[in-house]
Structure formats: C-alpha cells, structure tokens
Design a binder for these strands. Sequence first.
DNA 1: GCCAACGTTGGC
DNA 2: GCCAACGTTGGC
Length: 218
Amino acid sequence: MPRKQPKKRGPVEISENVENFPAAGKKVKVATKAPDEEEEEISHWLMKSEPESRFENGIDVKFGVEDLKECPDQTACWDGVRNYQARNFLRDKMKKGHQVFFYHSNTKQPGICAICEVAKEGYVDHTQFDPKDPHYDKEEPRWYMVDVKFRRMTQRYIPLAELKALHGQHKQSGGALRDLSLFTRARLSVQPISQEEWDFILSLETTPAKFEYLKAYR
DNA sequence: GCCAACGTTGGC
DNA sequence: GCCAACGTTGGC
C-alpha cells in the first residue's frame, strides 16, 4: 500500500515522540522549521506513493493512482508510513476535506498525477501489528494513517523535473515554489503544501510544460 | 544499480 | 549530548 526547510528557526511543531515512547528517557532530536509555516494552518498536502512493483520483505508495496481508483469508493487507507514527522501530520494535522496531490515516486518520471482528498482523519495504522506486514512494529499504537479518496487526475502530469526547475528559479525570484517541501524536505512521504504552492501548481495544469524546464537540472 | 542525503540507533 | 555507523529513500 502507500509506502510509503525554510530559514528562520523555531520550535518544532511536533517533536516527535517522547511521550509516546515507552522507552522514554531516550534522546530525541528536535527538528526545526519556519515559524510562519508553523503558524499557518495547513490544509493542502502532497503524498508520495510508488506506482511500480517493489518488494519489501516479500510484499509488493506498489500503490499507484490506478490502484487507488480501483479501491471501493476510490478510497484507501494510507498505511505504512513510518516516519515521525509524517506520522504527526497524519495524526494531528490532516483534516477531512483537505486536498492532496497524489505524487508518483520511485518511477522513471516522478511527479504529480492526481488530486485526492482526506476522507477520514488520523487513526491507528493497524498494519503495524501484523508480523507479516513489511512495516511490522510491535510497539503500542505508534503509527497513524488517514483515508484518502480519489477526486480527479490532474489535467496533465506535472513532472518532478519541472517542479525542480521552477523551484530553482523561485529560490532566486521569491516565487511560489521557493520552499517547496519536495526539495526542502525531500524524503518526507507526507508533505505540507501551502495555499500559495497549491494554487501555483494547479495553475501549471493549464500551462503547457516548458520543454526547457524538463531539461534543466538534469 | 548507484549513491547522496538524511533519518535512526546506540556507544561512550 | 555527541557523533559514527548504519539503514532507507528516492532521484538519476
């Protein structure tokens, strides 16, 4: 199933896990993030999933948008996330109706292919208790998931290469994608998207891809 | 398939 | 609390 920073420093919005860990007393590194991002109520997200077969502990973790479409009610639980920052978004921040970019990762041309929405808010990811699951984790409820419902394909595929080229430009110009999490927190599988970023990326749908963007940065 | 970046673990 | 070793992600 789904497998699945800006400049000024401030306290982290979540710092991980201290009270959730029975093995407390452990030191926990505290990430930091921009205060303005912290204060903004996030209502848009990007979630990564792999559209091609890949086996983890003998189990295929493939889950592309076509798989989502085939689910009952075109809705799936987003299980398997095992990263604390992503977990905290799933558990605390993602609300019903929030809009989500469905992103294909670990594929030839990674990029945004569809729009979904949060259909059910954070609840315990049951797969952590299944010893056969590739993401088995016997600890007390530690991992969370949301349900995601397919809404529509984007009008065109928006490749990572294009976003990356734009991100490069916007870092100079102060444009909408200057801090895009895809590049500032590359390894997060559940990422916050600001309203400004959401609107800009949506506007790309109806803007033909500029070929040079796709070649730049390669 | 490679490997850089980064998250996690654990010794001290 | 530091940091080296290790594991994972994910673009290329």
